[in-house]
Design a protein around this nucleic acid. Structure first.
Length: 450
RNA sequence: GGAGAGGUGGCAGAGUGGUCGAAUGUACCUGACUCGAAAUCAGGCGUAGCGUUUACGCUACCGUGGGUUCGAAUCCCACCCUCUCCGCCA
């Protein structure tokens, strides 16, 4: 969420910067709501002040045993007027809040303007692209003989799921463990185990809600309708709405990334200055509906409803967030380097960035079968955008609460790393050599053999 | 699932419907004392919004949402969360 002050102070400036990322801010509506808010709020507060002082007078008069009927008469009409004003104010503030919640973050000044991924800026290429003396296979063809089974996954669940068996499943686990160990032991991250289902407040905090609900899996618990006992109570009570409301809220969301539960660790917290930076790493499954990407990446395990990811999160001092982002990016790159996978780093242009991000680097790994680089990690600085939604703060040197900055990045997406290992380490006979750093995790297996 | 207790400022913890944004303690900041520190003493110290823009004034916030009332931290209703005991359970 943007600071409403920045909109008040420089509405056209904010609007034009947001336009570079393809977001059209409804300037007129904001101005209208702000004008309404201002007049209604002033009026409401005047009425409240009057009510407070009158009530105080009544209290004092009563204490002295004086006659209060004169004051009572004066206040008689105040109640209705005030109630109406408060309702109007509430409505305007809700409307403003809703408008604010769907405005994306402001791109950092260094972000190149552009419309799509074609306009992203290549920062660097690392590693040597392997040359094969034979026709390369993609991970689906390779995996077929190595324990990768899409047909059975489809039977069990449906499209966009995968089933791994034997040493291949172990390789998947080895990758996750290797990443987790590297980040916790060498990069200073605290390993965390987190809930995979979260409430709506957490989703709102990191920016998935309210705008991107269709990308999420929503899981009801208990009945979706009021149960028999609740029906009875609804029938008997005057304010049945609160029961219906609580029934409606009886659900969780499956996390689309560990960013959600991990970043929300600091939601509604004021952390001491000396606790910054906080660095967390978590290995979790991620669940995405992939609504709107129906035709894309239907082959293989590139785009799945469920995949594993090792996620890095940093909670940092506002002045240190860009430093932190470079560091975090380096941590993610380290994994690719240790695995010997060629990759490149790109800085996303304004049009390709995620909703909450101020600056994003994608790391793209080389996939020989596709003869191209594919995203395997995304590292972002959200500045105070998430922190403002979460009310995540620290106590600054002056002792005042101030919003933290939040960062995160994949370190890495495990499924796609598996794909990259299979394709880059394939041999002519269809076997796959296991990168050396994974050997300690593979129980003596150094090669996947059909 | 059954029974009970409780959610108040950074923390702890008071609060007969009126002068309570909230005692007190603690932490923290400033000053005094000290060579310095500790101890002691004095003062300050919540968050957010609005209006004047240094000083100030007003408003909201005591788990959340409703209700009663001229007036609610305090009374009523619902919900959420935490803790204790019993039962069941991976």
């Amino acid at each position: 969420m943007l600071d409403i002050q920045s909109l008040r102070n420089d509405l056209t400036g904010v609007a034009s910067r947001l336009a570079t990322r393809g977001f059209i801010l409804d300037v007129a509506r904001f101005q209208e709501l702000e004008a309404q808010r201002k007049s209604i709020q002033t009026r409401t507060q005047e009425l409240q002040a009057k009510r407070n002082s009158s009530s105080k007078l009544i209290g004092q008069a009563k204490a002295k045993g004086e006659d209060i009927s004169a004051i009572m008469a004066e206040v008689a009409t105040l109640g209705d007027e005030l109630k109406q004003a408060e309702e109007q104010l509430g409505a305007v503030q809700t409307a403003l809040q809703q408008l604010l919640e769907v405005i994306p973050n402001m791109p950092h000044s260094s972000v190149p303007e552009g419309k799509s991924d074609a306009d992203n800026f290549e920062v660097r290429k690392v590693g040597k692209i392997p040359q094969f003396g034979f026709a390369v296979k993609d991970h689906v063809d390779l995996g077929e003989k190595l324990g990768l089974d899409f047909d059975t996954a489809t039977k069990i669940s449906g499209a966009r799921f995968s089933l791994l068996k034997g040493p291949l499943a172990r390789l998947h686990r080895a990758l996750a463990q290797f990443m987790l160990d590297t980040h916790s032991e060498q990069h200073g991250y605290t390993e965390t185990y987190v809930p995979y289902m979260v409430n709506a407040d957490s989703m709102r905090g990191t920016g998935q809600l309210p705008k991107f609900e269709e990308d999420l899996f929503k899981v009801p618990f208990g009945l979706e309708e009021p149960n028999a006992a609740e029906q009875t109570r609804i029938g008997n009570l005057d304010d049945a709405d609160s029961i219906r409301e609580s029934v409606k809220q009886r659900y969780f969301y499956l996390i689309p990334t560990a960013e959600v539960p991990v970043t929300n660790i600091v939601r509604d917290e004021i952390v001491p200055l000396e606790k910054l930076p906080m660095k967390f790493v978590a290995h979790t499954p991620c669940f995405r509906s992939e609504a709107g990407s129906y035709g894309r990446d239907t082959r293989g395990m590139i785009r799945q409803h469920q995949f594993d990811k090792v996620e890095l999160v940093q909670i940092v001092h506002p002045e240190k967030s860009y430093e932190g982002l470079e560091e975090l990016l380096g941590h993610a790159e380290t994994i690719l380097q240790k695995l010997g996978l060629p990759y490149r780093v790109v800085k996303l242009c304004t049009g390709d960035m995620g909703f909450s991000s101020a600056l994003t680097y994608d790391i793209e790994v080389w996939l020989p079968a596709q003869n191209t680089y594919r995203e395997i990690s995304s590292c972002s600085n959200f500045e105070a955008f998430q922190a403002r939604r979460m009310q995540a703060r620290f106590r600054n040197a002056q002792g005042k609460p101030e919003l933290v900055h939040t960062l995160n990045g994949s370190g890495l997406a495990v499924g796609r790393t598996l794909v990259a290992v299979l394709e880059n380490y394939q041999q002519a006979d269809g076997s796959v050599v296991i990168p050396e750093v994974l050997h300690p995790y593979m129980g003596g297996i150094e090669k996947l053999v059909p």
